[in-house]
Design a protein around this nucleic acid. Structure first.
Length: 425
RNA sequence: GGAGAGGUGGCGGAGCGGUUGAACGCGCCGGUUUCGAAAACCGGUCUAGGGGAAACUCUAGCGAGGGUUCGAAUCCCUCCCUCUCCGCCA
């Protein structure tokens, strides 16, 4: 959620920021609604103040045994008036909040302006594309041939967009999860978390999935619980409503969870294989940090994801997203894309973003800049570290050999019981 | 799932219809004292929002949401959570 105070001070500035995101917002109407809410609030509160004073007076008289009947009806009148005004205010305020909750975070002013993904900027490229004697095979051929990916049975169980990992495929997936987490918690000081995969609506609102993106979530209506689309949701909301001492920041968390995404509207769009599935594993990095350092921390976090790609020997590039392609809650995003030789395309395996205070405001994440200071909103940043299926794709396709087998990167071998090559049975 | 107990400020713990944002204790911050520290003493110490240049002031909050009442932390209803016992169970 945006800062209402800043919006009041500069509605046009927000209008422009939203235009950069391709949104035409009637900020004048919004500002007007906000003003009426506050006017009603002032009125309602002074009515309540009068009513409270009257009640207190009655209390005093009653104690002395005086007659309170006349005063009582007058107090009731005042109280009812306050209630009525409050209800009016509530109605308008709900309308205002509903609108505000659907408005995205303005991007940082440094973010390149653009209307869609064509406006994104490649800022770095690491490595070079693997070369092959013949054509590189795509993973949807390599996987079944090696008997490590089973698309048919995934679809049989749960429909299209679900896959079964088998044998060394399942183990490779599990190995990557463990290796990622060991890298982050061991080398970079992250605290590993195991979190619920089902969360309530408050958490979904805290990170920005609700109310706007309800159609992308799996929901258990019976219990009003949602399957998480990313560990970002439970991890960012972990400390919702809490106030940190500045000495306790930044908090660095990592967590592996499955991610569940309905991908409504995305069906069949270049989704062969496991590039886009309804359920996948991901390790997520989440930092709770201070406004002063969030920009630097984003770069540090991005570096952690990059280092892992480098150690896996994967060719990748870094994209700075333009205003039109930056996610709803984010103010600044870098995507990491790995090269998939088999499909001849770049695949997003990580999205590293700073949310400034947008999520912190929704989730109530605050800190004191010094002991005794007023609590203020902290900044949240997060990034994938990394998303599994597309790393599997890149590994299989990059390290494939002419006989159809795949070399396991050295760093993963201890996690695969020493297996160096995944070969056909 | 069934029965019982309970959810109050950073923590512990009172209050059970009247001026209570909430006694008391601990903690924390400032001060006095001290060579310094401890102890003692004095003062301060929640959050959100509205109004105000500011001093300040008003509103709301005792798990959540409704209700009764002139007035609710206190009474009533619904829900959530925690603990104990029973049942069930990976």
């Amino acid at each position: 959620m945006i800062d209402i105070a800043r919006f009041r001070a500069d509605p046009e500035g927000f209008a422009e920021a939203w235009r950069h995101r391709g949104l035409d917002v009637d900020v004048a109407a919004l500002a007007d609604l906000d003003k009426r809410v506050r006017e009603l609030k002032t009125e309602a509160e002074s009515a309540k103040a009068e009513a409270n004073a009257a009640s207190k007076a009655i209390g005093r008289v009653a104690k002395d045994g005086g007659d309170i009947n006349a005063a009582r009806s007058e107090a009731k009148r005042l109280g009812d008036r306050g209630k009525e005004l409050s209800e009016q205010r509530q109605e308008l305020e709900d309308a205002f909040k509903a609108q505000i909750l659907e408005l995205p975070n303005p991007c940082l002013t440094t973010v390149p302006v653009g209307s869609d993904e064509t406006g994104n900027v490649v800022t770095e490229t690491w490595g070079s594309p693997a070369t092959f004697a013949g054509d590189a095979k795509p993973h949807w051929e390599l996987g079944p041939a090696l008997d490590i990916l089973d698309f048919e049975r995934g679809a049989k169980l749960s429909g299209s967009g679900f896959v079964v990992y088998r044998g060394l495929g399942a183990r490779l997936n599990r190995a990557l999860i463990s290796w990622f987490i060991d890298q982050l918690s061991g080398e970079h000081g992250y605290t590993e978390l195991g979190v619920p995969y089902l969360v309530g609506p408050e958490a979904m609102q805290g990170t920005g999935q609700l109310p706007k993106f309800a159609d992308q979530l799996y929901r258990c209506a019976e219990d009003e619980l949602y399957l998480i689309p990313t560990a970002e949701v439970p991890v960012t909301n972990l400390h919702a409503g809490e106030i940190f001492d500045v000495a306790d920041l930044p908090r660095r968390y990592c967590a592996h969870t499955p991610c569940f995404r309905r991908e409504a509207g995305a069906a069949g769009v270049g989704t062969r294989g496991i590039t886009r599935v309804h359920q996948f594993d991901k390790v997520e990095m989440v930092w709770l940090t201070t406004p002063e350092r969030s920009d630097d921390d984003l770069m540090t976090m991005r570096g952690h994801a990059e280092l892992m790609l480098q150690r896996l020997g994967l060719h990748y590039r870094v994209l700075e997203l333009c205003t039109g392609d930056t996610g709803f809650s984010s103010a600044h995003t870098y995507d990491l894309e790995v090269w998939s030789p088999g499909t001849g395309s770049w695949l997003e395996v990580s999205s590293c973003s700073t949310f400034t205070d947008f999520q912190a405001r929704r989730a109530g994440l605050r800190y004191r800049s010094e002991p005794g200071a007023k609590p203020s909103l902290l900044h949240t940043i997060n990034g994938s570290g990394l998303a599994l299926p597309r790393c599997v794709i890149a590994l299989l396709e990059t390290h494939q050999r002419s006989d159809g087998s795949v070399t396991v990167p050295e760093v993963l071998r201890p996690y695969l019981g020493g297996v160096e090559v995944i070969a056909p049975a």
